[in-house]
Every structure is written in C-alpha cells, then in structure tokens.
Write a protein that binds this DNA or RNA. Structure first.
Length: 524
RNA sequence: GCGGGUGUUGCUUAGUGGUAAAGCCCCAGCCUUCCAAGCUGGUCACGCGGGUUCGAUUCCCGCCACCCGCUCCA
C-alpha cells in the first residue's frame, strides 16, 4: 500500500520531542552545554543500539547475498580510538591539513599563513601590506599609492612571524582597507591529546582521536587475513565513535564533533572492484529502505570527479531528505571506491607487506577496497525524522480512523492531534507497554505486573498505571512503542489481554498464553 | 571563524528596577470498565559571569548555547 508522503518534521520539533521524551539531551547541559556534543538519553540509547545491532546483524552476521547470489564473508572488529600517529600520517589525515590559515573577513578569502608575507614599515608605525609569496606587486603598488611611500622603507616579514599586535594594521592582499585579516589559526580537524600521565604537551607525546573508524580496519587487515582464514573477497566491519573538530557543528546531531560510524571495508580483487562498488551502493540503499525509510526520502547521489577525496576513484552518497534540508537532501552514508590507496599507504609507511596471495592463480595483489561508511548518529536522526508523524484522530473513540495531519492545518471538528513515532518494531526503543485498565483494582494491577515481569525477560518493556488509559496510550505513541497490552476485567475471567496497535490504534484480544508468540510474529 | 537573531519551569507563553503569572506536561490522592475526561493538592524557571544600583530576571559588558546565512566538512 502506497502511503501518503509525510512532510518532514522541523528540526526544532524533533529537538524538543527528543528532550521531552528522553531521547537526546544537550551534552553538559547544566553547564550551558558544549557546542557539537550530545548525550543520548534512555530511549535514544535504546534506539541507537537497535540501529547499530540491525546493521551488525545485516552486515556482519547475515550480510546480503552477493551479485551472483553467493554468500559473503564479513568479520567484525573493534579497534582502539587512539592509534599510533603514524597511522594518520600514512592515511593523509595529518599531512596537508595541518597548516595555519588566516581569513580575510572582507573578501572571505582564506590564506595559508605560511604563504603570506608582509611589508612592515621600518619605523614600526603605520599600515603594513600583505601579499602572497612571490606576488609582491599588489603590496608595492599600495605602498606607493596609499602610504605615499616606497617599499625600501619597509622590511618583509612572514605573516606567521608577525607580532600579533600588528595584525589589525595589516592590509590584506585583496581587501579594500587594513585590518580585515584574522590571526593565523590551525585548521586541523583532528582532536589532539597527549599520551602518558606525566607527558608534556610536546610533539613526541601527541596523539589523535580517530577521525574515522576505517583506518583501524586497514591497520588490522593483515591480522585478520592471518588469523581468520578469510578469502578474497571479504569484509571487515566496525562500529564506533569518531571525532572531528568541525568548524561549525550544526543541525542537532547531524554534524557533531563526537559521532558514531558503522563502516565496512570490503576487500576484493582489483578486477572486480567496480562490480562490488555498484553492488554495495545498491545494497546499502536497499538496507535503509528495509528499515522502513520511505524510498521517496532516499536517493543515490554520485560524486562528481572534482569533489572526490584524494583517496577515492568513485564515491556515491546515500542521501536523505532531512527536515532541515528539505526539499533538498543531506548525506547519510557514503560508499567510496578507495582502490588500493590505504593498503598501499600503510604498506609503504609501515614496511608491512599488504599483498594477498590468490592461491588459484599464484597471483599477488593488493586488494582494492569498497567502503560503505554509514553514520550511526545520523541514522538515528533519520529514524526520528522518518518516524515522526502528526495525525488527527477522532475524540473519544477510534471508529473514524486516523488521518495524516497537514502542516499548519486546523484540527477538524471532533478530532484531536496525535503525535506518534512510527518506528519499525525492530528499532523501537520500548517494544511493549503493559497497563492495568484501572489502578485501584488490585486484581488488575497484580496481573498486569505479573505480565510485565514475564515480558521484560524478553523485551524492553514499560509498565504504567498512572492516569486514564487513553493518556497512557498516547504517551507510548509519542515514544514509538508498537504494542500496548492492557489487563482488563475480561482478563480475570478468561486470561486474555487486549493488544493495541500503535499505528492503527486497533485492539486485538489475545490469550495471555499466546502473547509472546504473537509478539514474536510481529518482528519485535 | 564571520554576520544576523534568540535565551523566563519539561513545553508554549505573560510580566516586572523591589526575585515572577497562566495553560499544558509531570507527581500524589479521589474518581474512572479502553484512546490525552473530571476534582483536589503538589514539584519545577528568569542561560552563565561581571558591572551599574540600596536592590538586576529587567539596564550595560563579556561569555555560553541554540537558530538562520556564509565558511568548513580532508
């Protein structure tokens, strides 16, 4: 059945709901928060774990069948967050991205500070004129025109060596007045730390929090090949935290400085790499759809050649129409064809041979790598976006059914608004809620608690006896609990219970003895 | 990092140079035989730090966080 296409929820709506219902909190909130960091509350933790477990189940333990219907071999890994800094030198994360940069506030240009030179008046007083190394003409012209002076009255100083107090009097290369340049700043996005309790903050003690989980896989590639009897092609998967010192964390948990990734590195023969690349792009798109994400909100976007990263020969993103990007799309997962870049880099930097011997042909190859790299944190945001639904439901009963609320529409006469998170049952933080119909009847309460004690052995459950039954249903709707079980007076007679479905709001009477089997059949 | 905006309880709002009000939510009690009912009571807030002032949630400064636009996203 083709369902109506929902309008994406605004970010503000989601942030508010997440806080109110215990999904996601601002990190360090009681100390005014910390930009770019978020804490997962009780329900957010369950949701995130469920997404992670679904990925692990569907990628490592029971991956999809390959392009020729064959079973794939993928093994798991959990590498350290802090690795030898040489890893990041070899991967390219350190080199070339570690230079101090200066911005021009006016022209918005960004300069490598070590490429900027400055004409400073010998007297030390007055405007100084900056120019790009090797292009002093602009500055010399200005000295004559604006300072009515001659370059010989100036000395040339590197911008990086300039007294910071003089920066406000520096005239940038393409500014229309002095004082628009910022102080040089480091732009490396890796978090630095220092190893050893007594260690100083010297270069020799510096280490980095990993900016991606992928490198932990590459540096263990040989260990896995030597111990796990894997044969090409095979995959190594890892889920874990990564850290990037983003210039601008934005959009709730979409871009945060601490986040989680779910990454697969698929090692294959170079001749087959294109085939596997295409396979994984399609497989990953399908996987998100299998979680109940509306295909109309997903799309594949192939990177243009000029936006490919230095390591990549092809890359496609799985994009999602987030509320804050709509009608556009934002990245959810990237599938990169990394070629043999990483293994070759580590082979050269470490001296460890990364070749794989293909027994059948006695051929030694450095495998090529296809990397489906997915954001677990972003995945949670997608699930929340996708699940969030506003509906109009008839007051007092459910006979009139439910209808999707249009943004800004008035609630129709006789209806009221319901907020419901329509998570796939597999992903819902709480699977079953158990209620006694009334809390002032001991028999109902006792039986409901017995049921709760039994069900919580198997599933995350929630017991609630507070308020009217309808209120309790709505509370569960708002956190996405797929099933509510109510013990009523009939239950005392014939040992049946009612199970109320979150989406249809319909009830079904089930013998208590069959409840577990019934719930299992619903995919929770 | 730059520019603009915002900041009163969990949420939505009111208000004031003399430390704050309401609705919803939440909690407790009563009631209630299935979809946010009712009654009674209750908890909870002026983002943080300075300054001015006898006194600041209110005025000023700084900071922090969030939102929008740039920038960034290897």
């Amino acid at each position: 059945m083709q369902t109506e296409h929902k309008t994406p929820a605004s970010l503000e709506t989601l942030v508010t709901l997440c806080k109110r219902r215990g999904f996601i909190f601002q990190s360090s909130e009681i100390y005014n928060g910390l930009n770019g960091f978020w804490d997962f509350g009780p329900l957010g933790t369950e949701l995130k774990n469920n997404l992670r477990d679904a990925w692990w189940q569907d990628m490592v333990r029971n991956p999809p069948l390959g392009p020729d219907g064959e079973m794939l071999d993928i093994v798991g890994l959990d590498s350290a967050i802090i690795q030898n800094p040489k890893v990041w030198a070899a991967s390219g994360h350190l080199g070339g991205f570690n230079d101090p940069m200066a911005d021009c506030r006016e022209s918005k240009s960004r300069y490598r500070a070590d490429h900027l030179m400055v004409y400073v008046p010998e007297s030390g007083e007055g405007t100084a004129f900056a120019f790009l190394e090797g292009e002093p003409a602009v500055a010399e012209k200005r000295i004559k025109k604006n300072a009515k002076s001659d370059p010989s009255a100036y000395k040339v100083v590197a911008f990086t060596d300039l007294d910071p107090a003089l920066i406000p009097s520096v005239w940038g290369p393409d500014a229309s007045e002095p004082g628009t340049l910022t102080e040089p700043r480091q732009f490396n996005l890796m978090f630095k730390t220092f190893i050893g309790a007594l260690a100083g903050e010297g270069e020799e003690n510096t280490a980095y929090l990993r900016p991606e989980t992928a490198q932990g896989i590459f540096i263990n590639y040989k260990n896995v090949v030597d111990t796990m009897r894997v044969k090409l092609p095979f995959g190594i998967a890892q889920v874990g935290k990564s850290f990037r010192n983003e210039v601008t964390p934005r959009n709730f948990i979409f871009r945060s400085r601490e986040f989680e990734q779910m990454e697969l590195e698929w090692f294959c023969h170079p001749d087959d790499a294109t085939k596997w690349y295409n396979f994984w792009v399609e497989a990953r798109l399908q996987w998100w759809a299998s979680l109940g994400v509306d295909m109309r909100n997903l799309r594949r976007r192939d990177h243009d050649e000029d936006e490919l990263a230095h390591y990549s020969t092809a890359c496609a993103d799985v994009e999602y129409q987030y509320g804050f990007t709509a009608p556009g799309f934002g990245e959810l997962e990237g599938i990169a064809h990394r070629g043999d870049f990483d293994l070759t880099q580590h082979q050269e930097a470490s001296g460890t041979k990364m070749e794989y011997l293909v027994q059948e042909t006695n051929e030694k190859v450095i495998p090529h790598v296809i990397e489906p790299s997915s954001g677990l944190t972003r995945g949670v945001l997608v699930l929340l976006n996708e699940a969030y639904t506003e509906e109009f439901v008839p007051k007092g009963n459910t006979e009139g059914g439910v209808q999707l609320a249009k943004p800004g529409a008035q609630v129709p006469e006789g209806y009221e608004k319901r907020v419901v998170l329509k998570f796939a049952p597999r992903l819902a933080p709480i699977k079953v809620a158990i209620f006694p119909l009334l809390k002032n009847r001991e028999e109902l309460v006792g039986k409901a608690k017995d049921l709760y004690a039994e069900l919580r052995k198997t599933w995350p459950c929630f017991y609630d006896q507070t308020g009217a039954i309808g209120r309790r249903y709505r509370r569960q709707d708002e956190i996405g609990t797929p099933f509510c079980v109510t013990v009523d007076f009939d239950s005392l007679e014939d040992n049946t219970v009612t199970v109320r479905d979150r989406d249809s709001m319909k009830q079904e009477r089930i013998p208590a003895s069959e409840l577990k089997a019934w719930l299992h059949s619903k995919g929770i």
